[in-house]
């Protein structure tokens, strides 16, 4: 399968690979998987409690190139955004940016799910905006 240059770039030079301290109050962890292929993705964010801005994001993905590229891109995109802005990121944005073919859409879905799961985890830890958290679910 032919990959777009952007996918190949993220695959060869993934941004923000690594992990944050899961037990920290300011860190949200999202661990998600795609049953279709068995791939798993962990995405973590560190949120500034005052501003709710995501200051750091890390990921680790065991999966296909598109999943790695999607999660790498997702960490780039969430950084500098507030939590609620980050919730707005859609998998379709990722598909467009990376020119993913239809069979790889589920890989971008995984990245969107991971962002939401990480934010959800952070909200739960910090008991932030119950109403917002419920809406996000």
């Amino acid at each position: 399968m032919a990959y777009s240059d952007k996918v190949i770039d993220h695959y060869n030079n993934p941004r923000n690979v690594g992990q944050l301290d899961k037990s920290s109050e300011s860190v949200g962890t999202g661990l998600v998987g795609a049953p279709e292929c068995g791939d798993v993705m962990r995405l973590q964010i560190r949120v500034n409690p005052e501003t709710q801005v995501i200051e750091e994001a890390k990921f680790k993905t065991f999966g296909c190139g598109s999943a790695i590229a999607s999660s790498s891109l997702a960490t780039e995109w969430v950084k500098g955004k507030t939590v609620s802005e980050a919730m707005e990121i859609k998998n379709t944005d990722i598909v467009k940016e990376l020119s993913l073919p239809p069979v790889k859409i589920h890989c971008s879905v995984l990245a969107e799910d991971a962002i939401r799961a990480a934010i959800g985890d952070w909200k739960k830890k910090n008991a932030v905006g119950e109403a917002a958290a419920v809406a996000a679910n």
Partner: peptide
């Protein structure tokens, strides 16, 4: 899951 208009809650 390879559909653009998926229901985001479908897989949760």
């Amino acid at each position: 899951e390879n559909t653009e208009n998926r229901d985001p809650r479908a897989k949760q």
